[in-house]
Design a protein around this nucleic acid. Structure first.
Ligand SMILES: [Zn+2]
Ligand SMILES: [Zn+2]
Ligand SMILES: [Zn+2]
Ligand SMILES: [Zn+2]
Lengths: 131, 131
DNA sequence: ATCGCACACGTTATAGCATAACGCAATTGA
DNA sequence: TCAATTGCGTTATGCTATAACGTGTGCGAT
């Protein structure tokens, strides 16, 4: 179960995100793809749904926006929970992973008998350049 | 610098959230407060802004919704980063705090020379009853 | 072959979340 | 008294996301 061949719309959305400096909202993506024939939000949202499912894209809940996954290797996501720093100054987003946090969260949540399906960790602040 | 006396609108919104079982969107709050004279979203959002500032309410980014803070004591928030479990089944939200995660996150972020302003941790899944 | 099904796609309309911009009133403090 | 601040009310608008409908294409089962 690797990543299936992307459809045309999925490729276009993936390309737009991959070549972008930072995160983009669905509507920003739509605007970037007007010249390629995109006319309606659903074209973007449907492609994003699949890209999220394949793990090629992440959603930033605190921004209502999307970023291409920056993991160098396929298995990077196995190294622990996914988290992001988001600079309020320049918009730069950095993805990172950590097993220690995953384990600690897992223990705390297990104590509640809670079954985790998706974990969101987003840190808003200022990057080195924007401090 | 404790919590100032709440205005009428702020009290009404706080009351609505405090007596609610789970999180509520701003528009749901608006509907609950129609009988008290609320007519427009801004009345809710302005009250929420203040309540968030005072730390009486938390915003759930992954739901675009708000919950009353459930900390038993004032200083509970000093015990570490704030996190939530959110049940997809019954909507139950549980707030908790942890110093170990705060320290670990802090270390990882410091390595990027990133200055944290606000940390969001939200765990979606199913609670014990809804498993 | 052709039927049925799954899936991607396109379009229109609608729902849900959040803020801009204006003006008024009450409070405060110089 | 005057200016600054804060809260409030209203109208309008913008941004984010999905519902509901129909089309076409590919592909395996009968
Ligand atoms: Zn990733
Ligand atoms: Zn920056
Ligand atoms: Zn709290
Ligand atoms: Zn539940």
């Amino acid at each position: 179960m690797g990543t299936p061949q992307l459809t045309k719309n999925q490729s276009l959305v993936m390309g737009a995100l991959a070549h972008s400096e930072g995160p983009m909202s669905a509507y920003t993506i739509l605007d970037k793809l007007r010249d390629e024939g995109f006319r309606a939000p659903l074209q973007v949202y449907r492609a994003l749904d699949k890209l999220l499912e394949y793990g090629l894209v992440h959603r930033l809940e605190s921004l209502n926006a999307f970023v291409a996954c920056t993991c160098p290797h396929e298995h990077e996501h196995d190294r622990g929970v996914t988290a992001f720093t988001i600079c309020e100054g320049c918009g730069q987003v950095t993805e990172f992973h950590d097993a220690a946090i995953e384990e600690r969260l897992s223990a705390l949540v297990r104590a509640q008998s809670f079954k985790t399906e998706k974990t969101t960790i987003e840190i808003r602040g200022h990057c080195k350049s924007c401090a």
